[in-house]
Write a protein that binds this DNA or RNA. Structure first.
Length: 438
RNA sequence: GACCCGUUCGUCUAUCGGUUAGGACUCCAGGUUUUCAUCCUGGCAAGAAGGGUUCGACUCCCUUACGGGUCGCCA
C-alpha cells in the first residue's frame, strides 16, 4: 500500500509556521516513502473563509517548495479538493450513519452518537493513549451537521481522509483529543482509519503557544526579511525532529532522505529566531555568486540603490557576511554609490589611533604613485606606508577600511580596492582626512 | 474544573539501565585572515522535585510541581 498524506488547512488566515511545519512533515513523510502528498482545503466555515487566505496558503507552500501531488490546481483522482464542493459526498456518508441509527436530531442540528466505551489510539508519536467515552459528561455527543445543513469539521475530515485514501494523518498535537472521535466515526462508517501521528506544538520564546499574531508566525514575512525557503524549511524541520546525528544543515532533498516519524519527539519546541537566522546564513553561503546576487537584487532595488553591471561581484562580497538578505543593501551601499555616512564608533576608533590616522594622507599619495592599480599593489602600498612610519601594516588596515566604507566590518579589503578603483579610493582617503581634520 | 500530553545546558536537541551526559544556536576567550566574514580551538551552561524498582536510573514505575493541549452548530 502506497503512502498518502495530506495537509488540510482552513483558509481563515495566512499560513503560519505551525501549519507550515505540519505541511512539511506530511510532505517529507510522503516523499520519503515515495508516496503522495495531498492538499485539501477545509473551507466548511463560510463565515471565516477568504480567498486571500487561500491564496496566501498556496503561495506560502509553494515558496517553501512543498509542492502537492494532488489538490487544487494540481488535480488528482480524489477531488474535488475543496470541501465546499463535496456536499454530495458528505450527504451520502451521512445517510450511512442515519441508516445505522448513529445520529439524532438536536435543535435542528445532527449529533453523532458515540459508543460509550474506552477508545484507544496507537499514535505513531505519542504512543498508546486511551480516552474513556463511558464518561459521557466529558465526551458529549458531537454535532456533525449544522442546522443549516452544512457539515462540521470532524465529519468532513474523516469522510475525506477515507475517500481520499489517506494512510497517515500527521497533524498538530492540538488534534490529539479529536482522534478518538474520528476513530469512532471511522468505525461507524465501517472503514479502516488511517495511522495517526501527532506532532508537538511550536511555542513562543517564552513557552506560550505560538499563535497567528506572534512574532515570526507568518510564513509570508520570511521572504520579506530575506530568508531563503530552504533555510526556513531546515529550521522548521529541527523543531520536534532530529536527524540523530551531529549534522543539522540540510536541504529539502536531504530532509526527505532522512525524515522518519520515529525521530519526531514529543515535547513542544520554542521558536528561536537567532538559530533560524544562522541557518539562513548557512544556506546563503551555499548559494553560487549568481544565485546570491539574484536573491539579493530585489532588496537592493527596493532600497533605491543603483545597480550596475558589476552587481554580481558587488553582491558576492557580502555573501558570507550577512544572515538575512535584507542586510545586503546596507552592507554594499558604499560600493554602489559614493554617498555614505561613517559609523561614529568606527570613526572614533580611527581618530583614537593617531599614528594610523596620520598615515591616511601619505597613503593617498602612495596610491597615486602606484604604476599599476591592483589589490596586491594597494596592499603593498599600505605595508610600505605603515612600515616607513614604524607601524605594522595591520594597524593601517582598519583605518583604511573605515575610510573606504565608513564601517568597521564588510567585504575583504582587496576586493574593495578592485571594485572601487584607484580614483575613488584616493578620493575617499582624502575625504576621511577632511572629516578627521587632519 | 475534567480529561489528555509533556518536562536533559538560556534555546533546539542526542542518549532507547552502566557515558567525563554529546552536538548545534547564543555568549566569552584564543587562533587563522597583515583587514571583515568564513573557518578552527577552547570555555560558560542541563537530567523539575520527592519516592520507589535495580548491583546500577536522565532512561522504568508512582506522587507532586510546572508547562502545554482539549473540552463549540471553529478547524
Amino acid at each position: 500500500m502506497s503512502v498518502r498524506t495530506r495537509f488540510a488547512p482552513s483558509p481563515t488566515g495566512y499560513l503560519h509556521v505551525g501549519g507550515a511545519r505540519t505541511a512539511l512533515f506530511n510532505f517529507l513523510f510522503a516523499r520519503h516513502h515515495g508516496g503522495t502528498f495531498v492538499l485539501r482545503v477545509e473551507d466548511t466555515d463560510e463565515a471565516r473563509n477568504t480567498a486571500a487566505a487561500r491564496d496566501a496558503i498556496f503561495t506560502g507552500l509553494r515558496w517553501l517548495g512543498l509542492d502537492w501531488d494532488e489538490g487544487p490546481e494540481a488535480g488528482g483522482q480524489h477531488g474535488p479538493y475543496f470541501q465546499s464542493e463535496r456536499q454530495a459526498i458528505y450527504d451520502t456518508w451521512f445517510e450511512v450513519l442515519r441508516a445505522n441509527g448513529r445520529v439524532y436530531e438536536d435543535g435542528g442540528a445532527w449529533r453523532f452518537r458515540f459508543e460509550r466505551k474506552p477508545v484507544t489510539m496507537h499514535d505513531l508519536v505519542c504512543g498508546e493513549v486511551t480516552i474513556n467515552y463511558a464518561d459521557e459528561s466529558n465526551t458529549p455527543d458531537m454535532v456533525i451537521k449544522r442546522s443549516d445543513g452544512s457539515y462540521v469539521f470532524h465529519f468532513v475530515n474523516v469522510v475525506d481522509d477515507l475517500e481520499m485514501k489517506i494512510t497517515h494523518v500527521i497533524r498538530g498535537e492540538d488534534h490529539l483529543m479529536n482522534t478518538p472521535k474520528h476513530l469512532q466515526l471511522f468505525e461507524a462508517l465501517g472503514a479502516t482509519p488511517p495511522l495517526y501521528a501527532h506532532i508537538p506544538l511550536i511555542l513562543n520564546p517564552n513557552g506560550s503557544k505560538m499563535s497567528k499574531r506572534d512574532e515570526g508566525a507568518a510564513v509570508g514575512e520570511y521572504p520579506r526579511q530575506g530568508f531563503l525557503p530552504q533555510a526556513v524549511v531546515n529550521f522548521l524541520s529541527l523543531l520536534g525532529w532530529s536527524s540523530k546525528t551531529d549534522e543539522e544543515v540540510f536541504t529539502l532533498f536531504q530532509l526527505v532522505e532522512r525524515f522518519s516519524l520515529e525521530a519526531v519527539n514529543r515535547s513542544g519546541a520554542r521558536f528561536d529566531a537567532e538559530k533560524c537566522a544562522w541557518l539562513n546564513q548557512q544556506h546563503l553561503m551555499q548559494l553560487s555568486d549568481e544565485a546570491f546576487a539574484e536573491a539579493a537584487r530585489p532588496f537592493v532595488e527596493s532600497a533605491g540603490l543603483p545597480i550596475n553591471g558589476d552587481f554580481e561581484a558587488v553582491a558576492a562580497t557580502v555573501k558570507e557576511k550577512v544572515r538575512l538578505l535584507q542586510e545586503v543593501p546596507e552592507a554594499i551601499s558604499f560600493l554602489l554609490h559614493d554617498e555614505f555616512a561613517y559609523e561614529t564608533e568606527a570613526l572614533e576608533k580611527v581618530r583614537a589611533n593617531g599614528l594610523a590616522a596620520g598615515l591616511l594622507n601619505s597613503l593617498a599619495s602612495a596610491f597615486a604613485d602606484l604604476t599599476e592599480w591592483s589589490a596586491e599593489a594597494a596592499k603593498g602600498a599600505i605595508a610600505a606606508t605603515a612600515t616607513s612610519a614604524g607601524a605594522k601594516p595591520g594597524q593601517l588596515m582598519f583605518p583604511v577600511r573605515v575610510a573606504l566604507s565608513g564601517r568597521s566590518g564588510g567585504p575583504d579589503l582587496g576586493v574593495i580596492f578592485s571594485l572601487l578603483g584607484r580614483d575613488r579610493c584616493i578620493a575617499r582617503l582624502n575625504r576621511v582626512c577632511e572629516v578627521l581634520a587632519l
